[in-house]
Amino acid sequence: MPADSLVKISDINFAYDDRDILKGINMDIPRGKLVAIMGNSGCGKTTLLRLIGGQLRPTRGTLLVDGESVPDMNHRELYDMRRRMGMLFQFGALFTDISVYDNVAYLMREHTNLPEELIHDMVLMKLNAVGLRGAHHLMPSELSGGMARRVALARAIALDPMLIMYDEPFAGLDPISMGVIGQLIRTLNDALGATTLLVTHDVQEALLIVDYVYFVSDGQIVAQGTPDEIRASSDPFVHQFVFGEADGPVHFHYPAVPFQQELLRGGARG
């Protein structure tokens, strides 16, 4: 790993009430790279993004973004940092009451004093980058899932952020849209000179575009490596995950008493 990392996470713990979500995560996200965090549903990936964005505070550990400690920031410092971040939410989270154009223009109007003509050009440029310049007048309700995701992507990069975070960008998309989004994530990262953090469980799609992968399971990092290393890995968890096997280290069944026993008990009661 190169020394210059944009996000540096060491020994992060996080608990909701008494439930441990993250248990001692260490992670380095180097500048300019596209890093994926993978894991099965509910393993704390989204929580990790929230921690980096400062919406949640870790119970223990240090978290540095661009050399500054996120958990120690006050409200104003957090907002200053978030202006340099772009985030794509799971289902886009477009503002449904304004048009595609206004969605993308939102941050420019909110955080800059640019004249409206300049904003107009910038919005069309961003929409062009995701291939939706022609759809600028539509409302979010008129878009398909894949298009909405692309608009949200254009909104996330509106202010040329240094760090772009994606929360399940592939969820619920058809294969074509998936490929489109995947390529966009890669090209936008390289074109903007940004750093990208991708949270997903779509292994095949992600392995095509990322530089480095972390596997998270049960709040811990269980494997990491470049896509080639991952494909070649003999780790049973990685193997199960990459090839989508139903049973392995991650069990198909939710923990329960053996079925036979339960049936017998039920019979006794009846």
Binding site: Q55, R82, F89, A93, F95, T96
Partner: peptide, 21 residues
């Protein structure tokens, strides 16, 4: 309904992440 739906569709969280209160 409006605010609740904005919350349910993560629009409020998105806003907060975009440094808009």
């Amino acid at each position: 309904a409006e605010i609740g739906l904005m919350k349910a569709t993560e629009q409020l969280t998105a806003m907060d992440m975009m440094a808009v209160n």
